[in-house]
Amino acid sequence: MIDTLFRILALFRKELLAMLKDPKSRIVLVVPPILQCLIFGYAATYDLNHVPYALVDLDRSPSSHAFAARLDGSGVFVRVATLTRPDDAAPLIDDRRALLVVTIGRDFEKNLSAGFAAPLQVIADGRNSNTAGTAQGYLATIAQGFADDWRAARGLPGPPLKLTTRAWFNPSLETRWNMIPSLIGVITMMMTMMLTAMSVAREREAGTFDQLLVTPFRPTEIMIGKAVPSMLVGLSQSTTILLVAQLWFQIPFAGSYLMLYCGLALFLAAAVGIGLFVSSIAANMQQAMIMSFVLIMPFMLLSGLTAPIANMPAVLQYFTLINPLRYAISIAHQVYLEDAGPRQLAPELMALAAIAAVTMPISAWMFRNRLT
């Protein structure tokens, strides 16, 4: 038992030296997670801070001017043109100079004073449906606020219902609060799978794989010695992302670090099992890298990172049940934002344990057959 432990530690040290002895390799392990966090945090966002729009004011009343001033003063809507006819709006949308065209009807103030619905037309550029929908939602909120303030200033009765909303876990509804914790699982899986998949392929290309076979190492010891360093690198990268989320983006961590790392350990066990399977069938590093990317893309698309799983077709929802990244993202969100405990995370933890219990033995069997 002690001899086995020393052999695994020796192989563990060898793998870490192979990963970290080259300065370029050290940079690759540290810099990409930070860059991806910054890119996703600032670029991959559904939040709108700049909405160019054109205004068509057919009423030209004090109320219509007040509404236009409310839009211009919102800090989000930027007027790029003031038109006299609705027909002039088409070129602005065709050339992408305006995302919205807001048309204020002729009887805008008159209908407001009479307590009727005031005519307000919005034409949106639907080529990007997410952006257009978000912009229309912002505009609807401003219009409702203007109508409430206008009635209150004149002592008129307001609407029978007034909706007051409050968002839990993400009060400002910022996209990065959802995106950055997800990267803890996404980037960790990418690097862990690739490092594990290329570990054996690197030995084959360097010509040291045959030397490894004539050593006293057993196949199981070789597999453990190559899996554990990749898991440690994955945990270090997840820690880097966690620090960027808290120190740079100031996203408050509500949960338990112990709970988060327990979930990540199970997730990495499942990811390493898949990576070892790829390494057992790849003949060289190029094949290992291509196979890893081929697997990572479906994992990302079926994880709920970009689209809710509930919106997917029923067949694809069943496929997500065997995707470890789905459970990793769920654990990261629940622990980071909701302060979830073991009871709440039990389904995800059990699913990851089941995936690891299947992938690791299969990978060990494949690994053993390739070595013997």
Rank of each mutant, 00 (worst) to 15 (best):
R154D: 07
I355T: 03
I222C: 06
D47C: 08
A346S: 12
V76S: 13
G105P: 03
G225S: 12
A307R: 03
G207D: 14
G145M: 04
M297E: 11
F299P: 00
R127N: 06
S363K: 00
V80F: 02
L247S: 07
A270W: 01
V80A: 11
F116L: 00
S363L: 02
F169P: 04
G255A: 13
A118R: 01
G207H: 14
G105V: 05
L92I: 00
S280M: 05
R202P: 00
A90H: 12
M19W: 08
D95G: 06
R204Q: 10
V335Y: 04
L325I: 09
A354S: 10
A310F: 10
N49T: 15
L9N: 11
W168M: 04
A152W: 04
R26G: 15
I2E: 12
D339W: 08
V78R: 06
G75H: 01
A135W: 02
D94E: 15
V315G: 09
R151G: 00
I222E: 02
A364V: 09
I27T: 15
N284I: 14
L301D: 06
S363G: 12
M194K: 10
A124H: 07
A132E: 09
P361Q: 07
L195V: 01
A245C: 11
M300G: 08
W150S: 00
N130F: 09
P219R: 14
F293P: 02
T175L: 08
W177E: 03
N49S: 15
L316G: 12
L173Y: 06
T82G: 00
L276G: 04
W365A: 04
M189N: 02
N111C: 02
S25P: 12
T220C: 10
L258M: 11
L349F: 04
A124K: 05
P324G: 10
H65P: 00
Y318D: 14
M291A: 14
R326P: 00
M312N: 05
M300F: 11
I39Y: 14
R79C: 01
A364M: 13
L258D: 13
A197C: 07
Q211S: 15
L325F: 03
M198P: 04
T134C: 08
G255I: 08
P52Y: 02
S64V: 09
G75R: 03
M285T: 13
R85Y: 04
T320A: 09
E221N: 02
L20D: 12
V272R: 05
A66D: 14
V294Y: 06
C262I: 08
T372L: 10
A66H: 09
P342I: 12
I322R: 03
A118D: 03
V358A: 12
F108W: 04
G75N: 01
Q246G: 13
A269S: 13
S363H: 01
R154S: 06
V272F: 00
I184E: 02
I296H: 02
A98K: 08
H50E: 12
T175V: 10
F217D: 09
I123E: 13
A68P: 00
Y336V: 10
L156W: 11
R166F: 11
L71K: 05
F169S: 09
I27N: 12
R151Y: 01
A288L: 03
A98H: 07
P298L: 11
S182W: 03
S63C: 03
R127M: 07
I39N: 13
S292Y: 01
S279Y: 03
A152V: 11
G115V: 02
S182N: 11
I93F: 09
L266W: 08
L58W: 00
S292A: 14
D57C: 11
T306Q: 09
P32Q: 05
T103L: 01
L212F: 08
